[in-house]
Write a protein that binds this DNA or RNA. Structure first.
Lengths: 265, 265
DNA sequence: TAGTGGTCTAGACCACGCT
DNA sequence: GCGTGGTCTAGACCACTAT
């Protein structure tokens, strides 16, 4: 068991082409390793006519139970990487593989810009402490006027501004000294290092905007003429407590937002 | 086993408050029934302090294996109805329960409007056969200029226009006679009845728009001033073949689009 | 230390597709 | 009829939380 596990890990060390997401909790289970193993073989185009070996075959090949393989394939199916036909088999989903940064998953903006093929840079516009306005206080379940840290930054893709994002974090969550430059990295790193909080999920709301005279110039588009996409998001930790309010605004002509919508089971 | 199964079904007959989604394949598995059973108890607020009984307890209570209960709870967790803390228990997710029509799932517009508390009506604007323009043909994997059926309709919520949607279906999929009024019902019903095709999932792209002089009046908003949200979607059947191109445009001031974003595992 | 969820196994039976 | 994925079981062990 241990030996097999180790052999498994060694195989996985060669995997470099899988796009990285930003999440933290890493404890590679057999299921997760099986998933990566299969995904690697998919991106290497090792399966003839997109046909993936049967679950039993894969289970024997990797020396794990069929259940483990099924769980791995289920995750790949959710990601849109494969699809299954009862009685027929499991197949590579070419269309689904096109979507690199699906909206239902959390991605850093850096990863999103990478996936779109842009070079990228970050500018920190401002970091200030302020009393929480009513809406933010309510979303974060803190007292009105309680102090929050407000960090505003801008992403530049291939030299053009593309995203403005404003993060709101309750000051009482912060446990360690920080400096402005900490915000040049993704916000989940700040939460992990300075607040010992781990982002589990976002509840997000999608809102279209007409570029305002303030926002338009910041994103390099004509105010009053251009439609922008914005996200209002509340981030929760693993205890289901709100720890972050984020507000982001995109140039949709540079970043396409895609997702997979399924029938509810 | 059969008896238990039946008892189970009888219990479920009383469930009426669960919002209905639009999907079709119904073959209530034990897992699905367990999910509905637990969800019903959640909406009835039967759990003190939001604490859900342990997996073992539920398994004994329903006479199924713990695996079945775990699968049911996993689905509820994905839906945002519960969250789990290892070592502590499973709990009702109050914040997640607020979101009725999550974007990652397919909902009929009727259900979305219901969930927002609107009365609703549908107007069929036009139904015509046309040669497929290049983009649509490519998305549907049919020959350019191949005939498609284009159906445009408008949804009215509380007397105000709220959604314009245009569906494109390859004519060669249609197997049965139809009439214009068939389009007053959700498109998945047309696909099921007239094309014997079952919608499995959409690949969707979200695009913000500034209301154009054409679209603005149709949705009752000022052209050139108002931002609208639009969806470009390709629907696939269970064989992973594209069967539908849909184009929808919303008044976001009337309909809020929400979703849950998670860290990739 | 007791109880919870997290992972994994080995095996059973079913529904469905192919040929 | 054979092989595939879909469902379900009973039980094991681990990691973590609470007390």
């Amino acid at each position: 068991m241990i030996v097999r596990y180790n052999k498994f890990v060694v195989q996985l060390d060669n995997i470099t082409t899988i796009p990285n997401t930003c999440m933290l909790k890493r404890n590679p289970s057999l299921t997760e390793q099986a998933k990566l193993y299969i995904k690697q073989r998919i991106v290497n185009d090792e399966f003839e006519e997109g046909r993936i070996p049967s679950e039993t075959t894969l289970a024997n090949e990797l020396g794990v139970s069929r259940t483990t393989i099924r769980d791995a394939l289920s995750r790949l199916e959710l990601e849109g990487a494969v699809y299954r036909k009862q009685g027929a088999g499991t197949f590579v989903n070419e269309a689904g593989l096109q979507i690199k940064t699906r909206l239902e998953e959390i991605w850093t903006y850096e990863d999103m810009l990478d996936a779109h093929g842009y070079s990228h840079a970050v500018e920190i516009i401002s970091v200030e402490e302020r009393p929480a306005p009513p809406r933010i206080a309510e979303a974060l379940a803190i007292a009105p006027e309680a102090p929050i840290l407000v960090a505003k930054k801008r992403f530049i893709a291939d030299g053009r501004p593309v995203i403005i994002t404003i993060n709101h974090i309750p000051v009482n969550l912060i446990q360690t000294a920080w400096e402005q430059s900490d915000f040049s990295r993704p916000i989940y790193e700040f939460l992990a290092e300075k607040c010992r909080q781990h982002l589990a999920y976002y509840l997000s709301e999608i809102v279209p905007l007409v570029a305002s005279p303030l926002l338009g110039p910041e994103l390099g588009v004509t105010a009053g003429k251009t439609a922008l996409l914005s996200f209002d998001e509340v981030g929760y930790n693993q205890e289901n407590e709100p720890i972050l309010c984020a507000n982001s605004c995109f140039r949709d002509d540079m970043l396409r937002l895609r997702l997979i919508r399924r029938g509810a089971m």
